[in-house]
Design a binder for these strands. Structure first.
Lengths: 204, 204
DNA sequence: TGCTTGATGTCAGATACTGACGCAAGCCGT
DNA sequence: ACGGCTTGCGTCAGTATCTGACATCAAGCA
């Protein structure tokens, strides 16, 4: 029997999100959160660098899912198709989201009212993009192709993610992502066809 | 003769930026800043909503410059060319930056070390983009064209701005911006040509 | 002169964070 | 079984950011 209940960080994350939804982020103090969980403020700040971090500290593992998705694809199919690799990465991330729609909805609701949190989210997304781009580049995808592939794949993910959280009926994120990928494809096809012609001299 | 020196906010901005460059953002307290200017902390927080705001509160006037640039163009040339209007806006903003290169360099140096400030900057840029897009749309530019035009014009501005601050010799931001616009044009021309063909071919 | 306005000062908090240290349970090698 | 080490948390004291309520005093105006 342990002296304290295990999973303190998880219970703090859960309690924080509930309170943020209920009263708003600014109106919820760290003392409110720790009181609900039954620990002290010092414990909170040992698990999370600051109050915002309780909403963001799982990013590290998400980024790992993203990069693993890309590397798995590249090991199987090689670096020839950077866009497909980037899409394999976003698809892997989407799968890991699938079971937690309600948590993501609550999270977005909290972020909507707090510009500081939106900024942190944007920084996080930039870091994800950079990491994915680096992974592709280090595995043989030409740097320019990697940049474009990441931009396109991430744009589709954002579209699909937004739809996933907005829709009343819960469609699966994965299928929304495939649809978004296809939509972006159809927009970009003329441009890519043109570039392929000038580059390889080949044509559909 | 006034009881206090005028321009308190300006002197606070200046002192803050100097201290941030000298010691770093986190290592500079608000007390440090107000002591140098000779006011109290309460005065600081009356001028700036929080410590970060001392680096961001001029955004409102910059956004006004941006939107005025777009509206002036649209009044003269009409809404036919959304991209040109967006570029007129970024060019107007660039002109307003021209005289303050050193301040912009210092600012960027401070932001580089503080993720929270980078987040605020990203949020700011998003707001600028939204505002410009709305302005274009409200003045007759089709919404989709407005979105694309803003994305392209802003991308060029960011490129030029970065070069402007990085270059050792101080080239003029305006000319760097024109060059960046041209570079993006040459990248996008094939795509746009293709789309124009498919569009006019179907409609006419 | 007397009244109002506006920018600032003063003071007393609330909240977010940090460093130093102490405590007790579990684990591990002897 | 013993003692030490590690781990997770508590306690306490302190700093920094930010806020509300109220006071002050020059300047402008009636």
């Amino acid at each position: 029997m342990s002296r304290w209940e295990p999973g303190t960080a998880d219970r703090l994350r859960l309690a924080a999100l509930e309170l943020f939804v209920e009263r708003g982020y600014d109106a919820t103090t760290v003392d409110d959160i720790v009181e609900q969980v039954g620990v002290t403020q010092r414990t909170f700040f040992r698990h999370f660098a600051d109050k915002e971090e309780v909403l963001f500290d799982e990013d590290a593992s998400m980024q790992q899912v993203l990069l693993d998705g890309a590397q798995t694809y590249l090991r199987r199919h090689g670096p020839r198709n950077g866009l497909a690799a980037a899409r394999a990465a976003t698809a892997a991330l989407a799968r890991s989201f699938e079971a937690e729609r309600e948590r993501h909805r609550a999270r977005r609701q909290v972020l909507a009212d707090v510009p500081a949190l939106q900024g942190r989210q944007l920084v996080k997304q930039e870091r994800w993009g950079e990491a994915l781009r680096d992974t592709l580049a280090q595995n043989g995808v030409p740097p320019v192709d990697a940049s474009v592939a990441v931009a396109v794949a991430v744009a589709a993910l954002q579209l699909a993610y937004s739809e996933w959280l907005t829709a009343n009926r819960s469609r699966r994120l994965h299928s929304l992502l495939m649809a978004a990928d296809a939509r972006l494809d159809s927009v970009l096809t003329p441009a890519r066809a043109e570039r392929d012609v000038s580059r390889t001299g080949r044509n559909r």
